Simulated scan of single mutants.
Amino acid sequence: MRVLVTGGAGFIGSHTVDALLAEGHDVRVLDALVPPVHPQHRFPQHLLDRGVDCIIGDVRDRKAWERALADVDAVFHLAAYQDYLPDFSTFFNTNVVSTALLYEVLVESGLLPHRVVVASSQAVYGEGTYRCSNCPEGRQVHPRLRKEEDLARRLWDLRCTVCGQSMTPEWTDENIVAPHNAYALSKYGEENVALTLGERYNIPSVALRYSIVQGSRQSFHNAYSGILRIFTQRILGGLQPVCYEDGHQLRDYVSVHDVVRANLLALHHDGAVGQAINIGGGRQVSVADFAQLVVKCAGASLEPSAPGLYRVGDTRHVLSSIDRAASLGWRPEVPLSDIVEEYLSWAVAQPDFGDVTTAADEHMRALGTLRHAT
């Protein structure tokens, strides 16, 4: 097939391109190459050397879609805006409007691709699913956004609104959605556009809700792009890894290689069509434990710090159930230590590797996105 990958010069996109080429497909990439993710504003040489048809264009531009979609058999729409900045309209213009434009051009051109796969996010769950063991029958709870006054007082954990006791986070399946920030709202909007218009116009579509994806080729310059990047930069610079809140937040980190296998599954498996599907790591890992793992793999002797910083709109715990993906034959395979070791080896070999975390934190502080609890 000829497959279009938007955002194909980026982190998940470039790994997906590699896998598609390995399967023998012709690949076209549409990418705007905008900073800070692409400070050099050029396509990676490894894409050009392998004959990938690379188009510079913005997914918010109809003409860019018209050019990129010519004669394609499948689409991976991975281009997205991700950040913690309060430029809310950019999230919706980039993530939702671009997806609407994709389907608009497909319908008006009479194109019926074999598959459209869009990248959604675990962020759509907000605080996810909890269980209050103190309430009768162990009441299941889906909390709303934490209160600012609680965060400012370092009251990080969610408590049951009935009995006031702490609750236990559980795996969240695809049926519970409660986005709490602009990025999450835009991703939920994007997957709704894809699945609804896909069904309406007979365009087989899939939305994959990625958990926190880690691995090589993550940009060093994007404040959103990952805990592994942040910890690596600080630790290799001889600085303590800084955990937001108290470091006890639970996440399910997943390797980019496992995500790429899920992408290919969505491309080929008809059972994925019409569904939103969680793609997660299947393991509960605290932020502090992740920091300790990076310290260990880097051969350093540093202790994580938790000075009481918190980001507005962050969730306390969120864990994605992967039962639906498992029913289609997918499970994560890459151990967490392998993810970290691969990233460390890749990062130190990059000419632009360095610590930009301090500047990113200062920028988020100035905008009020990153705050310090009393």
Rank of each mutant, 00 (worst) to 15 (best):
F43R: 05
L155W: 05
E191C: 07
D71R: 10
T172I: 08
S320M: 14
G271T: 11
T172W: 05
W156T: 05
Q284K: 15
D150V: 00
G51K: 06
I227Y: 08
I203C: 13
R153L: 10
Q218D: 00
L319I: 08
F220G: 02
R146G: 14
G13E: 10
R209I: 09
H221K: 01
G13T: 09
Y188R: 15
L47N: 08
F43D: 04
C297Y: 01
Q122G: 12
S320E: 09
T168H: 09
S337T: 15
L102Q: 13
H15F: 01
P351Y: 03
S301C: 04
H41C: 02
Q233K: 00
D73Q: 12
S337C: 10
T172A: 05
H114E: 15
W171E: 07
L78W: 01
C163K: 03
G24F: 11
D18T: 13
I230Q: 12
L145S: 15
L250P: 05
R42L: 06
F76V: 03
I212A: 11
P136L: 06
N181H: 15
R154S: 14
L78I: 11
L78K: 00
G7V: 08
D258N: 04
L265W: 05
S321C: 14
L102E: 13
V105A: 11
Q45C: 00
A300V: 11
E199Y: 05
S109A: 15
A207F: 06
D150H: 12
R234V: 06
D258G: 06
